[in-house]
Design a protein around this nucleic acid. Structure first.
Lengths: 177, 177
DNA sequence: TTGATTGCAAAGCATTTGCATGCTA
DNA sequence: TAGCATGCAAATGCTTTGCAATCAA
């Protein structure tokens, strides 16, 4: 109510909605207002959302929706092939779009939390080669590169430690002490 | 008591112990029997141990040591540069040797849990190149490749699903349905 | 002696599950 | 109407913290 988000891209979303409803039917599940809204908000957001992030966004449009439903729907979206789980090393699981959004890897800024997605055919080829070398049959992989994005590098130019809380915190970060 | 582990490599361990004690001194901490034993057991094991794994091993030699102490000591070992945290995507944090055990990546068998460590200079170079392309200042990275090891591939040759519980389970695995 | 360390129990998180009520198909 | 979905509260699994007793320096 407070914050009207413009739904100005009905066309692309319709496709995903169709996939969702088809999946629901095939699985003998039921279409509900909650699920529709959660999918809607998810599709409108082009970020890596944790369940809680999405919950908060959904809350703005329907305060009656519970956390649990968001968790469950996110799993459902994953089953339907619309979402994909990603983990950046802090405790929480995030979700990104999976439909028409092929495999890629991530550059993650540990300062501001920004992530950049990239795809490198060379990298993929190299991975296949290494796997073959160890007689591994690869199903999937995750490559994450952590560091400081161009923006944050500027801010860090003259002082190593920043007062700001990093958005992504994880214990395996190299100690700066 | 039940299972005597041969401590037949005193020489290499002494080095790490020295590092540990030096770190403890510098930080104004104290050397204790618990910490010594936990380090000892950690050094004797060449695997990726979770805190609980290590706790169980330590318990065999001193049943009075608590979980909490193992958690805390593992952090201490990490601070001292002797251990390094690794995450394979299931909930728990594992630790591997960090001293004289340079950076490497992992091949992880989702069937039996076996991990293979490898290092590829080509891969590292490629990563640096990609980071530079996005003006990222890299601090570290994690590359994990999941699949079936050569052993497990044999077992899977004629049946897709196995009854055995996989040791590493994680939700982002590609659905087999 | 003094302050760090220990181990227990309790608290924290993120996520999952049990269950009575509510709602699609 | 039957059975899936929902939302709350409780449970879970891993990890951290509070605290009184203990121990190293």
């Amino acid at each position: 109510m407070e914050e009207q988000v413009a739904t100005n891209q009905h066309e692309p979303m319709a496709e995903e909605q169709e996939i969702f409803h088809r999946h629901i039917q095939r699985a003998g599940l039921k279409r509900t207002a909650q699920r529709d809204l959660i999918l809607d908000v998810f599709l409108r957001t082009e970020e890596h959302l944790s369940s809680e992030d999405l919950y908060r966004l959904v809350q703005k449009e329907d305060p009656d929706i519970g956390q649990t439903t968001v968790y469950r729907t996110l799993k459902l979206l994953t089953d339907a092939g619309l979402a994909r789980e990603v983990r950046f090393g802090d405790g929480r699981t995030r979700y990104e779009h999976n439909y028409k959004h092929p495999h890629h890897d991530h550059l993650i800024c540990t300062e501001c939390g920004k992530t950049i997605e990239f795809f490198s055919a060379d990298m993929e080829a190299l991975q296949d080669q290494i796997a073959a070398q160890y007689k591994f049959e690869l199903t999937h992989h995750t490559m994450r590169m952590f560091g400081y994005c161009s923006e944050c590098r500027k801010g860090r130019a003259h002082h190593e430690e920043t007062a700001a809380e990093p958005r992504i915190r994880f214990a395996s970060a190299p100690s700066t002490s």
